[in-house]
Amino acid sequence: MTNFSDAFAAALGLVLSLDASLTEIVGLSLQVSLSAVAIAALIGLPVGAAIALFRFRGRFFIVVTVNALMGMPPVVVGLIVYLLLSRAGPFGVFGLLFTPTAMIVAQVLLVTPIIAALTRQVIEDLWIEYEEQMRSLGAGPGRAVPALLWDGRFTLITAILAGFGRASAEVGAVMIVGGNIDHVTRVMTTSIALEVSKGDLALALGLGMILLTLSASINAGAYLIQHSTKRWHA
């Protein structure tokens, strides 16, 4: 147990002293996950809204697929992106494998279905309520999209935070396409996996604490947004 408490103390020391290698890792993690979530939101919000509002052939299939993709195992996504980006793959010429860009691509694939599926649900419910009034005012589904996204903003923020939670917590995809290269593609989750297997618990624990704090603050933020804005979306 002393081993554990020593490691814990050392971890706290690393965090409080803003250890250079630790901040580098945290910085890269945030950079990768935030970029991925931003891109995923740009794709997922309009796509989700479009699936919610338009009736077309194969819509049922798309809804089911997007919902199923929400639960895609990160290692599988990692493998697919690996195959696409590897030298022999279709996008091999870009030489993106084992770069932060490859990690962002993988996380975009992981997060977009989450944002799209949740957006579809939110927008579909809003449209049921708004449709007649909107049509009466002269807005069909197409023109109503911006208004619906805006009116669903508080719920959609939680959808985006859910996406960020998934991106920052997953290890499988970034490990495979990033390769956990020190100073290049090492992020919090991959280095925790590495340090634990090496037996260096201090850094792993320190990163674990930061990751936990991050996810706790995301959830607290989501709750506060929901709560403090209740009167707008009741």
Binding site: E129, Y130, E132, Q133, S136, L137, A147, W150, D151, G152, W232, H233
Partner: peptide, 22 residues
């Protein structure tokens, strides 16, 4: 033309913004 429904459909924004949107 305009129509008012049995249950008012209000957008999730201010009173002013509801009219402004229309």
């Amino acid at each position: 033309q305009a129509m008012v429904f049995q249950r008012p459909v209000m957008l999730r924004r201010s009173v002013t913004a509801n009219i402004d949107y229309a």
